[in-house]
């Protein structure tokens, strides 16, 4: 197990290098250092000298990948790529183009992101699994049919409509919760209700339908029939056998996203004014802040790889037969 994990970790390194190369290349074609300088220095009264000065100061006057002028290791290290990308492997994200420390920003924004994402994830999982179990229990009945229709209808609505509609009804017409905003600490709950609710409702359709098929697949297996023949109640069968065995396919889809919860949700956060990582990313895209986007991509990839590993580990908990060598 340990050896397996170590191997996975080692395998992650070339992937991260690849990720870095891709994003670096993409963003440098988009955004030359000149563009970045102009973006940061503003529109009015920008002179060529000011831009040149900015580039020197931020280290953007170096060559991209290979510095032919430098000696020794400097050929590779004295370049923009090395200075801006490679340092991320040791957790040094550097500064955003507006001069603010990225790591610090990420730390402060993680909290709000998680405050939204964790309840949405956990409650969402509970609600969808119970809904799917309900449908599976009443399989082939009108309740099941209409439940599935409801699911399909729910998943056919764009996420934008959920947010626009939810804000309009619950906050504007009924005035039940604040429309947007965030505050740290315990006061946050009233800001969280609506985005969490919308998050759950918008996710219910596709996942509940998917879980239902998984459950039905299990229900039709022999051992379930045996269990039922033993005289176990339907509920005991559902919870004791079906849910347990359906966990593997559910875990495959679910565990991988847990680490990504840190990244926040782009849409929800910007509509609800939550100062999390999602809105940080959107701001950075809009401001073409290369340094921030690069850092977020890097973190996203790391979290994804962690998620894959967590998935593997979680299998062993659910199904002791699975071993990694």
């Amino acid at each position: 197990m340990l050896a397996y994990l170590v191997r996975r970790l080692l395998y992650a390194i070339p992937i991260l290098i690849g990720v870095n190369l891709i994003t670096f290349a993409l963003f440098f074609i988009v955004n030359t250092p000149d563009d970045m300088a102009r973006m940061q220095l503003g529109v009015k009264r920008v002179t060529a000298e000011a831009i040149a000065k900015w580039k020197v100061e931020r280290g953007y006057d170096k060559p991209l990948f290979i510095n032919a002028q430098a000696a020794g290791a400097g050929v590779l290290t004295d370049t923009i790529f090395f200075a801006k990308s490679a340092r991320m492997f040791v957790g040094d994200f550097g500064r955003a183009e507006d001069g603010r420390d990225i790591a610090r920003e990420i730390r402060t924004r993680m909290g709000p992101s998680l405050a939204i994402a964790l309840p949405t994830f956990i409650l969402g999982l509970m609600v969808t699994i119970s809904f799917a179990l309900l449908l599976a229990f009443f399989r082939a009945s009108p309740l099941d049919f209409w439940g599935v229709v409801l699911c399909v209808a729910l998943m056919s609505i764009s996420g934008l409509f959920y947010i626009i509609g939810g804000q309009f009804l619950i906050s504007k017409l009924w005035r039940l919760v604040p429309i947007s905003g965030y505050s740290g600490g315990l006061d946050a709950w009233k800001f969280l209700i609506l985005p969490v609710l919308i998050g759950i409702v918008s996710g219910i359709g596709s996942s509940a339908r998917w879980y239902r098929t998984i459950f039905l697949e299990e229900i039709n297996k022999d051992y379930v029939r045996t269990a039922r023949a033993k005289g176990l109640s339907e509920l005991a069968v559902l919870f004791g056998h079906v849910l347990r065995n359906a966990m593997i396919p559910i875990l495959t889809g679910v565990v991988v996203v847990i680490p990504l919860l840190f990244m926040g949700s782009l849409l929800t956060e910007s509509f609800f004014g939550i100062p999390g990582l999602g809105s940080y990313t959107i701001d950075a895209i809009n401001a073409q802040d290369f340094a921030v986007v690069r850092a977020m991509v890097f973190i996203g990839s790391v979290l994804y790889i962690v998620g894959l590993m967590l998935t593997d580990i979680s299998y062993t908990f659910v199904d002791p037969r699975i071993r990694f060598e």
Partner: peptide, 25 residues
């Protein structure tokens, strides 16, 4: 699910009963 939803709703109602400006940010 029922429990969660009911909990949510009762939370709403609780919240509604305690003051008139529920949406005060």
């Amino acid at each position: 699910m029922t429990i969660v939803r009911l909990a949510c709703l009762s939370l709403f109602i609780l919240l509604a009963s305690c003051s008139s400006e529920q949406n005060d940010p």
